[in-house]
Design a protein around this nucleic acid. Structure first.
Length: 462
RNA sequence: GCCCCUGUAGUGUAGUCCGGUCUAGCAUAGGCGACUGUCACUCGUCUAACCCGGGUUCAAAUCCCGGCGGGGGCGCCA
């Protein structure tokens, strides 16, 4: 077919394929703009055939666009014959442009329906590999992800990413209002930043390079470069062969870093106020999407509860676990704490602070008040870690000492360490997992559902 | 790296333990037909599947062996 199209030029390929170009008669209204107030008006709707309830001489076409659905009612004795004919040929997910009059209709939820004077088929759709209409059969996540583009058309799935957009947008705006500037750091790097997570190796001409596991070093260096407050929202890569509902191999990290802080408390203050603002604005702006997903979102109260790592260990041990103060809080502990926090503190947003030195990266500021601990924190939300942050070491000698203590050769990190010789400001910051924030906010079970196009253990497409 | 589970129509499942009644059931999707107020429309009808290879057996979706595929968990982390 494509060869024929080429060979015969552009004269008439729309007609030959049985479709029409968009033309000049474009959309005048979105589905959600159809209200009883505009009854009597002529409109053009453009979108997909969501459902066609064909009752013979009477057909109900549910048209879906970016903002919802609207009913087009095609009654044989009220529409032109050609409109009636075309309507009978529509398939699920056909693309159509419907011109017609808005008519009040008490039977319809929206209060109005459209009586068409013209229906143009803009594009055809083959039999669907998965249903776009939800609620008929449960589809495995695997199958959904294999057909992710169609899957994302489902209003409920689409709404997840509208909410994500809002959360990020308003968090960003909060930072911008607080004198942060957005930076863009390299994703191709020469060395690991934290040792822990494995790196993806890539060919860099005649050398090896890696995909960045975090913008950590660069955002710190930008403070040393004289930008007082910076943030970046970008991809990070983890070459871990994990296969869990909380992990993917590429995710979006929302990072910020701020100079001239008195201590880690300044970073936590910034984050809690940023999230408070982002939640508040999202609840306002994405109310329709939140309702679609079925989530009644509350703005978390500031200040968030803070407890020390050692206290968290105590709380977990009270439930019968046997952890030492040097142990990390594994997913089971996080789950337990996720149940304890709401009962005990009436909140599901809790900072866990003062992690032991052994559990934190080399650049983390040791604590003066708590021997062997760090000026660091995690933010847990509904029993899952969504942020890691802390005060960073700005003193060159101490930084080198800590790198050595972690078993890193400072010579390999000269590009990072050397600038600290020349007057680095005290600073701190954090990294927030955008998809994890989304999944916890919306009560989603698997982070892949909160990831547009997930990259996991064996998924590289779509 | 370690551990557990699992492959049946486009999709989701029943059947597998205890081989025959499976000519493989159901739902949804799809084709065709009927229906002028549906709203996951309804009704009728048709199409469509046992991951691959080998073995055991009179007989294999079912048992055994090998291969391939899929899902989840742990460690690590956001």
């Amino acid at each position: 077919m494509s060869d024929r199209v080429r060979d015969e030029g552009n004269s008439d390929f729309y007609a030959r394929l049985g479709v029409e170009p968009m033309g000049k008669e474009g959309r005048t209204h979105f589905s959600n703009e159809l209200t009883p107030e505009i009854a009597g008006k002529d409109v053009v709707l453009v979108g997909w055939v969501h459902i066609l309830r064909d009752k013979g001489k009477l057909k109900f076409l549910i048209l879906r666009d970016e903002h919802g659905t609207a009913q087009v009612t095609i009654s044989q004795d009220k529409v032109p014959p050609d409109v009636f004919t075309v309507s009978g040929q529509l398939k699920p997910e056909s693309v159509v442009a419907v011109k017609g009059r808005v008519v009040k209709a008490g039977q319809v939820e929206r209060g109005v329906e459209v009586v068409p004077t013209r229906i143009r088929l803009i594009n055809t759709a083959e039999r669907l590999p998965i249903d776009v209409v939800e609620g008929k059969v449960d589809i495995d996540l695997e199958t959904r992800l294999n057909n992710r583009i169609l899957d994302l058309r489902k209003p409920r799935v689409n709404a997840i990413f509208h909410v994500q957009h809002c959360l990020v947008k308003w968090a960003r705006e909060y930072l911008v209002k607080n004198a942060f500037i957005e930076i863009h750091t390299p994703k191709l790097v020469a060395e690991a930043t934290e040792g822990g997570a494995n790196l993806f190796e890539v060919k860099y001409f005649e050398r090896k390079a890696y995909l960045a596991q975090s913008p950590q070093f660069y955002k710190q260096l930008m403070l040393l470069a004289g930008f007082g407050r910076v943030y970046e929202v970008g991809p990070v890569f983890r070459a871990e062969k994990h296969n869990t509902r909380r992990h993917v191999n590429e995710y979006t990290s929302f990072d910020f870093e701020m100079a001239w802080i008195s201590g880690v408390e300044d970073v936590m203050n910034m984050e809690e106020r940023m999230l408070e603002y982002a939640f508040k604005q999202t609840i306002k702006e994405a109310s329709a999407e939140l309702e679609l997903v079925g989530v009644k979102l509350q703005t978390p109260k500031v200040p968030f509860k803070r407890i020390k790592h050692a206290e968290a260990i105590d709380l977990v041990n009270e439930t019968g676990m046997h952890l030492s103060y040097e142990d990390d809080l594994d997913p089971e502990c996080e789950r337990i704490l996720g149940e304890i926090f709401p009962e005990k503190y009436g909140t599901d947003m809790v900072f866990i602070t003062h992690y032991p030195l052994g559990l934190r990266p080399a650049y983390t500021m040791p604590s003066l008040t708590d021997e062997g601990k760090t000026e660091s924190f995690d933010l847990t939300y509904k029993g899952m870690e969504i942020t890691t942050g802390g005060q960073r070491i700005h003193l060159y000698d101490l930084l080198v000492e800590r790198f050595k203590a972690k078993g890193f050769d400072p010579a390999h990190f000269a590009f990072y360490l050397d600038p600290f010789k020349y007057g680095a400001p005290p600073h701190g910051g954090l990294g927030l997992g955008v998809e994890r924030l989304t999944m916890q906010t919306l009560g989603i079970e698997n982070v892949r559902e909160a990831t547009l196009l997930p990259r996991d253990r064996d998924r590289l497409t779509p």
